[in-house]
């Protein structure tokens, strides 16, 4: 009775293993975090009335669209990584996971480039509440991406040794990391539409 049950096995009455319930609860709290930020966005936009700038006035929609494609494809490759583990193909997993991390880093560098362009044109968060909420929202989102990259790289590098010892548990870890990553992509879909397109 020493080892913690249901870390890998699924518990009958809930049908889940611990980590999956844990990640879904964490994602629920993330929904509330971005909920708080979007409620701020809505309040600021309504408060600003008509002189709320269109997204396109400050933001380059083309780069934003490209970034959305990058994140969506990284979401798909993350899924492929998990699928290839399910098919016991460790080589494919390493490849797809590597691509996911690379795409995430690409997303961050494009984001960094966008930020530097803003600062070069002297658009700072303190200019108006649109830029303030833009930098805050995308900044928090970028922090989440960095967190995801750290976890994914650990699972790609040292963490993948667990594949030999406990393949089942390692597959679950990738699934859980995948759920987090899809959520980050889901938030970006809303963020991109709200900030760049409206």
């Amino acid at each position: 009775m020493q080892e913690i049950p249901y870390t890998v096995a699924v518990r009958q009455d809930t049908g889940l293993y611990n980590a999956k319930m844990g990640i879904w609860l964490f994602l629920a709290s993330e929904v509330m975090l971005f909920g708080g930020l979007f409620s701020a966005y809505v309040l600021l936009r309504v408060g600003a009335g008509e002189h709320w700038p269109l997204g396109a006035t400050y933001l380059n929609v083309a780069i934003g669209t490209f970034n959305t494609f990058v994140l969506m494809s990284s979401s798909i490759t993350m899924l492929m990584a998990w699928a290839s583990l399910k098919m016991k193909n460790f080589g494919h997993f390493k490849m797809y996971q590597g691509i996911t991390i690379a795409l995430a880093l690409l997303f961050l560098s494009v984001k960094g480039y966008e930020y530097s362009m803003k600062f070069k044109h002297h658009h700072f968060p303190s200019d108006n509440t649109f830029l303030a909420i833009y930098f805050t929202l995308t900044g928090i989102h970028a922090l989440h991406i960095i967190g995801g990259v750290v976890v994914n790289s650990y699972l790609w590098g040292p963490g993948s040794k667990m594949w030999q010892a406990e393949p089942e548990r390692f597959t679950n870890r990738i699934e859980v990391a995948g759920l987090y990553w899809h959520f980050v992509d889901l938030v970006w879909i809303f963020l991109f539409s709200v900030m760049y397109l409206l």
């Binding site: 997204g55 396109a56 929609v61 669209t65 959305t68 494609f69 969506m72 879909i189 991109f192 539409s193 760049y196 397109l197 409206l198």
Partner: peptide, 11 residues
């Protein structure tokens, strides 16, 4: 991808 492009177009 296509829905995103559609969104951009609509905007």
């Amino acid at each position: 991808l296509s829905l995103t492009l559609m969104n951009v177009f609509v905007s």
